[in-house]
Amino acid sequence: MKGESRQSWDAFSYASCARFVSELGMPVVELLAPKAGERILDVGCGDGFLAQRMQLAGCEVVGIDTSRELVAAARARGVDARVMNAEAMTFGPEFDAVFSNAALHWMRRQDRVIDGAWRAVKPGGRFVVECGGKGNIDGILNGLKKAFARRGLEPDVVPSPWHFADVPEMRQRLEARGFVVQEIALFGRPTPLPAGVEGWLSVFAHDFLASFDAENRKDFLDDVTEYCRPALMKPDGSWVADYVRLRFSAIKPVTADD
């Protein structure tokens, strides 16, 4: 993947069109099993929805995100949120757990994120993540490719802002750093899109939309929507995306050196 992502985040649009991202993250919070008094680092905290719930459970949570607007929204929830690139975390071993939901696939240099998590978590601490996995949103990506091709453009004219790993790749990355993988799984999770494919693209796919002016962008969105319709629209008119999630829990051994 080349170049820098042009993705930006609007807190209102995220809350209105993408709240399902955080709400569907509760199972990975259950896998984390946060305990009162624990200090937890939430990597890619977004608007702080899950961090706030961990705080309500008695945890001390620090959230990081690259979006200033989402960090501001998280702070408004009472979260200690900081603008920080997860690929350049500088924390020492001060956390009982490092947690992340729906964020790691946005990070191109995932080894750096894993290195940062290793340094941030105490020996014996855990690293618990759910993110997009191999095969995630293939239906939407196919629609994007067809819409670009219709305009005489190569499908990869815009580098993908995402990297969707499979189980062997992620296990290798974690174990190479020294983590002991306790659980890791790739699974399908069909996900309703309350704002349809167009709403999803408007929130998550800025890289693909940035090349078009307002008029041509609407035409492009209409085309992608039509190409996605056979695979993703249900008979009742609702939209369901073909999400695939990668979820893991790993431990930093008590004997580990930092």
Rank of each mutant, 00 (worst) to 15 (best):
M1Y: 11
M1E: 11
E4C: 10
S5H: 10
S5C: 10
W9V: 01
W9K: 03
A11S: 11
S13T: 10
Y14P: 05
C17K: 07
V21W: 01
E23Y: 02
G25I: 00
V28F: 00
V28D: 00
L31Q: 05
L32V: 10
A33I: 05
P34N: 08
A36W: 07
A36K: 14
R39D: 08
I40A: 00
L41K: 04
C45D: 01
C45V: 04
G46N: 05
D47I: 01
G48H: 04
L50Y: 01
M54Y: 03
G58M: 13
C59I: 07
C59M: 10
G63K: 04
G63S: 06
G63R: 02
I64R: 04
A72E: 14
A72G: 13
A76M: 05
R77Q: 07
G78T: 09
D80F: 05
V83Q: 11
M84R: 10
N85F: 11
F91P: 08
E94K: 13
E94R: 13
V98M: 09
V98F: 06
N101M: 07
L104M: 14
L104G: 02
L104P: 02
L104S: 09
W106V: 06
M107G: 01
R108A: 15
Q110S: 12
Q110F: 11
Q110L: 15
Q110E: 12
I114E: 02
G116H: 06
R119V: 15
A120D: 13
A120T: 12
V121I: 14
R126N: 06
V128T: 08
V129S: 00
V129W: 00
G132R: 01
G133E: 04
I137V: 14
N142H: 14
N142T: 14
G143N: 02
K145L: 11
K145G: 12
K145A: 15
K145P: 05
K146I: 13
R150W: 10
R151I: 00
R151E: 09
L153Q: 13
V158T: 09
W162C: 12
H163I: 15
V167G: 06
P168C: 07
Q172P: 03
R173S: 11
L174E: 03
E175P: 07
E175A: 11
A176L: 13
G178R: 11
V180W: 05
V180Y: 03
V181H: 01
V181I: 13
Q182S: 12
Q182L: 15
E183P: 09
A185E: 13
A185T: 07
P190I: 05
P194I: 08
G196W: 03
F208T: 04
F212W: 14
F212A: 07
A214I: 13
E215H: 14
R217F: 06
K218Q: 15
D219Q: 15
D219P: 12
D219F: 15
F220H: 09
Y227N: 05
C228I: 01
R229G: 01
R229P: 04
R229D: 06
A231Q: 09
M233C: 12
K234M: 14
G237Q: 04
W239M: 10
W239G: 08
W239R: 04
V240W: 04
A241E: 09
D242L: 08
D242N: 05
V244H: 03
R245M: 15
R245V: 12
F248S: 01
F248G: 03
S249T: 06
K252F: 04
P253V: 15
V254K: 14
V254I: 15
